[in-house]
Design a protein around this nucleic acid. Structure first.
Length: 271
DNA sequence: AGTGCGGCCTGTCCGC
DNA sequence: TGCGGACAGGCCGCAC
C-alpha cells in the first residue's frame, strides 16, 4: 500500500538508474493490471530518459518531448532495478530494459497498479487533470482546505483523501494527521474551523515529510527499489492500534469504518 | 455537485 | 494441519 512517501522514495531510488539512459525495449509479461497494458508503451523503446518525476502517486518516466511512461503502484506494486537477464520473480509484470543491461522491473501481486504511455503535456492527461495540489507544495494550505470544505457534509477523513482536494493522503496518513491535529475523522468536513484546518494541513505536511525522510512507511507489501522492505509501522500513532492505549491520554484507540475504510482515532483526543 | 459504493486482485490471517 | 472466508487497500467510474 504505497502512500505518497513510498512513491517518493521509489522515485528517488530509481531515478539515478534511469535518467540519461536509452530504453532498449519493454517486456510485458502480464498486461492484466488495473487497465490492460497496451502496445502504446512500446513507443518508449529507443528513447532516452530525460527526467523522472512524480505527480500525486503517479510516477512519470519522461522521454524528451515525446512523452513517456506513467506508472502507478496501486496497492501492492513496487519497482526495482535489476539486471535485464535476471530471472523474473512471481508477479514481475513489466520490464523496462536499458542500454546498459540493467532494467526497471515492475512487480505487483494484486495488480491494482497501472503502466501506460502518456503524451505531453502530462498535466492534461485524464488521470492527472483534475488533481488537487501537492501536499508539500505552496499551493496547499489550511485556508484552501477550509474554503473547499464549506457546505460539505461528508467526513473530513474522506475529504482529505479526495485527490481533487489534495493528493497523496492515503488511508494511513489520513488517520495519523487527524490524530495529530485533534480532529475526529467522522466529523463533517464543513464543520471544521479554519484554525483547525491550519493545524490539519500542518500535520499532513509534517507526517508526509517525516515519512519521506524515514524512507517510507510500509505495512506489508512495499519493497523499496533496492528490494528491501522499509518497515516503520511502529512509528504510527493510531493506525492499526485498535484497543491499544493512546500515546497522549492512554484511552484505547478505536477503529471505525468510514467511507469503507478502516479509520483509527482516539475518542479522547479527537473531536 | 456531492456522496456512496462496486469492482478490480492476491497474500495473509483467523477460526473451525 | 488444512481449508475456506474475511479482510486489506487506491482510486476510477458509475448511480443516485
Amino acid at each position: 500500500m504505497p502512500e505518497l512517501p513510498e512513491v517518493e522514495t521509489t522515485l528517488r531510488g530509481i531515478e539515478p538508474s534511469l535518467t540519461g539512459r536509452r530504453i532498449r525495449n519493454i517486456v510485458v509479461r502480464n498486461p492484466s493490471l488495473r487497465w490492460p497494458v497496451d502496445d502504446a508503451v512500446l513507443r518508449a523503446e529507443g528513447l532516452v530518459v530525460t527526467r523522472c518525476w512524480r505527480r500525486a502517486k503517479y510516477l512519470l518516466v519522461e522521454t524528451g518531448s515525446s512523452g513517456g511512461l506513467m506508472i502507478h503502484l496501486g496497492m501492492s506494486g513496487s519497482l526495482r532495478i535489476c539486471d535485464a537477464d535476471d530471472a523474473p520473480r512471481k508477479h514481475d509484470h513489466v520490464d523496462v530494459a536499458l542500454d546498459n543491461g540493467r532494467c526497471l522491473r515492475f512487480n505487483d501481486p494484486r495488480r491494482f497498479g497501472m503502466f501506460c504511455w502518456w503524451e505531453p503535456p502530462a498535466e492534461d492527461h485524464a488521470l492527472l487533470k483534475a488533481l488537487g495540489p501537492e501536499p508539500l507544495s505552496e499551493g496547499f494550505s489550511g485556508a484552501c482546505l477550509h474554503a473547499l470544505s464549506r457546505k460539505r457534509k461528508g467526513a473530513v477523513k474522506n475529504f482529505i483523501m479526495d485527490g481533487k482536494i489534495v493528493v497523496g493522503v492515503g488511508n494511513i496518513y489520513a488517520s495519523e494527521a487527524l490524530f495529530m491535529s485533534g480532529i475526529h475523522p467522522a466529523r463533517a468536513a464543513g464543520r471544521v474551523s479554519l484554525a483547525r484546518y491550519e493545524g490539519l494541513a500542518a500535520a499532513i505536511r509534517s507526517v508526509l515529510d517525516h515519512a519521506i525522510r524515514r524512507g517510507g512507511t510500509t505495512l506489508r507489501d512495499f519493497l523499496n527499489s533496492d528490494g528491501n522492505p522499509g518497515y516503520f509501522a511502529q512509528e504510527l500513532l493510531v493506525y492499526d492500534r485498535e484497543g491499544k492505549p493512546c500515546f497522549q491520554c492512554g484511552r484505547p484507540i478505536r477503529r471505525k469504518v468510514i467511507g469503507q475504510r478502516s479509520s483509527f482515532y482516539c475518542p479522547g483526543c479527537q473531536r
